[in-house]
């Protein structure tokens, strides 16, 4: 008997279930083995779970992010994906990855720590905002209303995680020389810098004063993507498969599974901020 045949026999019931399950909403091997990657890429699983969560009302879901530090390789794909997704200008970053070298040769290693916004439940940043420009939206994501923000940077000072940076109005390519007919030139090249869909809105960000220039900016769990059923940019691009995103109110979701394990921590717990970003160590 071939290996496949043996396997079939061994798990006949599962396969049978797979065959008879109605196609609508069918899930391929819904029960993951001990390794979340076993049956499908976790990205696909999370994508499916995201769709499930979106069927609920916003207040019923609880978005969390889980970062497995054992799997993070410090590649910064997440950092750059976030920059690219949100067209973050020079000096603005939502998700840096800290690298630390530990030990003495030859007993030496490196540690990597990606840091999105913690989306704190008790968020010091929102409390200090004088004009309610930064607040918890109906899904409890901490957002910044660029049109409301006066740019006082109090939230930046208050965030214990350094998760906020200020938009000083820089561009990566725009200032570079123009020379029609010889080179592409700064302004032509920089078209992409003006495409940002943050918060589901278009931000051309032209000029020296147009929001989000002059505002404090931060990670928003890519809610403009989530609403369309796309996982956050840092999550889909995580080549280490170290970043997980989902609804912690869904008992069957990957993130729920992960945060209910003992090897989970949150940063600066002592401050009582109650982050929604968990780390597996």
């Amino acid at each position: 008997m071939s290996n496949e045949a043996k396997l079939l026999q061994k798990y006949a019931s599962e396969v049978f279930a797979g065959l008879v399950a109605p196609l609508e909403g069918m899930e391929i091997s819904a029960a993951p083995a001990e390794d979340p990657l076993a049956a499908e890429d976790v990205l696909v699983r999370m994508h499916r779970e995201l769709a499930r969560a979106l069927e609920k009302s916003p207040s019923e879901r609880r978005w969390v992010m889980v970062i497995d530090l054992r799997r993070c390789i410090g590649c910064h794909a997440c950092t750059v994906a976030c920059v690219a997704e949100n067209k973050l200008p020079p000096g603005v970053v939502y998700r840096p990855v800290m690298t630390e070298e530990i030990g003495t040769y030859p007993n030496v290693t490196m540690k990597f720590l990606p840091r999105p916004c913690m989306q704190c439940e008790h968020s010091p940043c929102t409390e200090v905002c004088p004009v309610n420009a930064t607040y918890h939206n109906e899904e409890e994501i901490v957002v910044v209303d660029y049109e409301q923000c006066i740019g006082c940077r109090a939230c930046m000072a208050a965030c214990p995680y350094g998760a906020r940076t200020f938009d000083f109005g820089y561009h990566y390519a725009e200032q570079l020389p123009m020379f029609d007919g010889a080179i592409v030139g700064g302004q032509t090249a920089a078209g992409y810098e003006h495409i940002s869909q943050e918060y589901g809105q278009e931000w051309e960000r032209k000029g020296r004063h147009e929001s989000p220039v002059g505002n404090v900016r931060k990670c928003h769990f890519c809610l403009h993507r989530i609403k369309d059923g796309i996982l956050p940019a840092c999550t889909t691009t995580c080549i280490g498969r170290a970043t997980y995103f989902g609804d912690a109110n869904d008992p069957d979701s990957l993130v729920t599974e992960l945060i209910n394990k003992p090897n989970v921590i949150r940063l600066k717990e002592e401050l009582g901020t109650e982050p929604r970003v968990y780390y597996i160590v």
Binding site: E127, V128, C129, P130, V131, N132, Q148, C149, I150, G151, C152, R153, A154, F166, D167, H209, S211, V213, G214, N215, V216
Partner: peptide, 19 residues
């Protein structure tokens, strides 16, 4: 020092008193 000083009125008209 404000990024958007033209919006200073918001502090009067749309204030947050936890701040």
């Amino acid at each position: 020092d404000l990024g958007h000083m033209e919006r200073i009125w918001k502090v009067y008209l749309q204030p947050s008193f936890t701040s």
